[in-house]
Each structure stands twice: as C-alpha cells, then as structure tokens.
C-alpha cells in the first residue's frame, strides 16, 4: 500500500512542490498587478509580512499556544479513552458486547452536529472545546484499535499458545504488537480530526486561540491574518502527520515497507 512511495521517496517530493510554488507565483503576480484586491485575498508577500509582525509581537505565539493546549488536552482524553475502550472491546467478549453497539450507533451522528448539545451541557468555555476534540478523536482510535485486535493473525496466536504463553503474555507479545499498526492509523486520523474539531470548536465564542484570530480578522476584513491562520492550521496538520510517521518509523521498524526504505 505504501510501496510506491517508499521505493523512490525523493521523487514525489520534488514533483509535488512544483505546482504549489507555481500557484504561489501566480497569486503574487495577480496581487501585484491589482487583479486580486487585498480585501478579497492578501498577497503572499503581505501575508509573510503580517506573519513576521505577528511573530514579532508574540500575538501568534500566544494564540497558537492556547489552541495547541486545547488540542493536546482533547487528544489526550480522546486517544486515552479511545484506546481504553478499544482494548476492552477488543480483548473481552463482554466488553465488545457492551461497548461496540454504542459506538456503532454513535457513528451515525457526525460529532459536529453534537456541538449544540455540548454547549448546553458544558457552556461556551474551554470544556466544550476540549470535550468536542476529545469526543471526536476517541472514535477513530477506538475503531482502528478494535479492528486491529480482532484482526490479529490467528496462526501467530496459535503458535504462541503452543509454546505455553499465558493469556496475559499472549496479549502483550502477540495481540498488542499485532494491533499496533492499526492503532497508529487510528492515531493519524485522530490528529487530523483534532485540527478539524479545533477549527469548529473555536468558532464558539473564543476569546483567544487561532479561531478567535480568524473571527476577529473576518470582522475587520484582514485577509492577511486569515491566511496566516490557515497556514498555521496546515502546519498543525503536517506536524501531526510527521509525529505519527516518526512514531511508526520507530515502532513498526519490523515492517517490510519500512525496512526497505
């Protein structure tokens, strides 16, 4: 599945950068000749300038830290509970019977649609924002871990069992390592969902954070600030991907796709 990427890792990078850079140049040219007015979309150069001054004043760092903290707390709760529930449902029949139907029912409702309920329950403060992120990220982790545990190769379990491993040892030496690739897929989803939920949650009466910056900039039609924030969101997404990739590189070193690279 990742074969093509891994066989010639450098080539796609080279090629993939060409079209974005071209777009950027066109964008700048459009702004310079006045075809794209600043109130519609600020030019790349002025976006960079604004980025510089926001960095200089410390405003960006402040709001970014607020948002990062929300994501970190939400993820910690969401990934933690998703993992715990996934383990329970994956490792015990009773757990599966108790938990899985509830999760499957919940799957039919988009988490975003629960925002009003969360506001009613938790108010418009931090709890709702963190709660939404936590709730949304628990599911990809749960679903992938559960599936990963259920999908562990029976033949490997049999082999380990034939050498007299206890149930606990089987879980530790066979089931969990076997389910780890799926768990990491879940984690990757969770990270991108976390950024998505951050955007949505910060629309709710935020007085700080990236979402607040964007809302504020919208009122004053500062498209340069909006673009800076969009860039930060993109960087958050990339950062999450990088994080999971580096975890994978360490934890899944045994996989042939990673071995070849």
């Amino acid at each position: 599945m990742m074969r093509a990427d891994n066989l010639r890792r450098k080539m796609p990078w080279e090629r993939r950068w060409v079209s974005p850079v071209l777009l950027l140049l066109l964008w700048q040219a459009g702004s310079s000749i006045g075809a794209i007015p600043a109130r519609i979309l600020a030019s790349p150069v002025s976006v960079l300038g604004e980025l510089g001054s926001m960095l200089g004043s410390g405003a960006l760092a402040h709001h970014l830290m607020v948002s990062l903290l929300r994501v970190a707390l939400g993820l910690a709760i969401g990934v933690g509970s998703g993992t715990a529930l996934g383990l329970l449902a994956g490792l015990s029949r009773t757990g599966d019977a108790a938990i899985d139907p509830l999760v499957q029912i919940k799957r039919t409702i988009p988490v975003v649609a629960l925002t009003p309920l969360f506001i009613v329950w938790f108010g418009i403060g931090e709890a709702t924002k963190i709660g939404l992120i936590a709730f949304a990220t628990a599911f990809p982790v749960y679903l992938n871990l559960h599936q990963g545990i259920r999908g562990v190769d029976r033949r490997l379990l049999d082999a380990a069992r034939s050498f007299g491993l206890s149930r606990l040892q089987l879980v530790w030496h066979v089931v969990l390592p076997g389910a780890l690739p799926s768990l990491l897929v879940g984690l990757r989803y969770a990270l991108s969902v976390a950024v998505l939920m951050l955007v949505i949650a910060e629309q709710v009466n935020a007085t700080s954070g990236l979402g607040y910056l964007i809302n504020d900039a919208r009122e004053t039609m500062r498209t340069d600030i909006i673009v800076v924030c969009l860039m930060i969101y993109a960087l958050l997404g990339l950062g999450g991907d990088w994080l999971v990739r580096s975890i994978e590189a360490r934890a899944l070193a045994w996989r042939p796709a990673l071995l070849e690279a």
Partner: peptide, 16 residues
C-alpha cells in the same frame, strides 16, 4: 514458520 514479525529472531527463539 509463524515467527512473530515484530520480534527479532533471537527474541522469537526465546518467546515465553
């Protein structure tokens, strides 16, 4: 052979 792919060869040998 049913070696656990996530354990190195020697760890497989002394599994359990």
């Amino acid at each position: 052979a049913r070696l656990l792919p996530w354990k190195r060869v020697w760890q497989n040998v002394v599994l359990g």
